[in-house]
């Protein structure tokens, strides 16, 4: 396959950036999308040009490090992570546009690499159960119904990649935040701090500059792990019931 790539190049956060067009020749349909970029980068290096920078690590769809906004969709045309996207999803002669995640709270660091530490700070605001190591009860002393455990696991599968933010026209982080709030609100272990967690995580989310939710459902449609917007509804309920009887003094 021969492809034309329009790739966003930006030297650093303060650089304005712009698209540069490259031609990728001899692309095999069995390559992953990132392997196609690896080959391009080796060619650029041999020609003495700066390779295209992009985030990636596990390349098996679980670490959440890879991003890329491909032809107007986060992680490209399939509902997977970019690392699991293969070139057989494209056709010979196609032009592919590759951009970084676009959101105020995710500043571009270089080319296609963005800073997602806002997500870490949202978790730091309350995405945990406040227990220390040791001194906990035996695991089977906390029975949990299978239905509830499964629902909590559905929410807990979020990989924190940020596709939900990139997909949202408001760059809202509601799906990400609600997945963690849901997981812990569903489980008995999360009950003690339920109210303060909802309040503090939502406050941090706002402080980071993420937008509001207008229920378009784009986040759910693009989430590579199929996190449901039911979680957003659950978070809203958690949040409103928390603010009317706030634990935050």
């Amino acid at each position: 396959m021969k492809l034309t790539l329009k790739i966003w190049r930006q030297k650093n956060t303060s650089d304005k950036g712009g698209f540069v067009t490259y031609v990728a020749d001899h692309v095999s349909k069995d390559m992953s999308f990132l392997e196609m970029l690896d080959v391009l980068n080796d060619q650029l290096t041999e020609r003495g040009e700066d390779p295209v920078h992009f985030d990636h690590d596990c390349r098996e769809g679980i670490c959440g490090m890879c991003s890329l906004y491909i032809n107007g969709k986060p992680h490209g045309p399939l509902q997977t992570t970019t690392c699991q996207l293969h070139m057989r999803s494209f056709s010979d002669g196609e032009t592919i546009t590759i951009e970084p995640w676009r959101a105020k709270a995710f500043p571009v660091l270089k080319d296609l690499v963005v800073n997602r530490s806002a997500f870490d700070r949202i978790i730091q605001a309350g995405g945990y159960v406040s227990i220390n190591t040791g001194g906990v009860p035996d695991a089977n002393e906390i029975p949990i119904s299978k239905t509830i455990a499964d629902l909590a696991m559905d929410a807990a599968q979020c990989i924190g990649c940020g596709a939900c933010v990139a997909a949202c026209k408001n760059a809202s982080a509601m799906l990400f935040t609600s997945a963690k709030i849901s997981q812990l609100a569903l489980l008995p272990q999360g009950q003690v701090e339920r109210k303060s967690r909802a309040e503090n995580m939502v406050a941090q989310m706002d402080e980071e500059g993420f937008g509001a939710c207008t229920n378009t459902g784009a986040c759910e449609a693009e989430c590579p792990k199929g996190i449901s917007i039911t979680n957003i509804a659950r978070m809203n309920r958690e949040y409103f019931s928390a603010v009317v009887s706030s634990d935050n003094m």
Partner: peptide
């Protein structure tokens, strides 16, 4: 044995049986 206790207390959603145990 203590690891499992610790992780459950943190809210790790391990697989469960219908009776609610791990």
């Amino acid at each position: 044995v203590k690891i499992i206790d610790q992780c459950v207390a943190q809210g790790v959603p391990f697989a469960r049986e219908y009776g609610g145990l791990l």
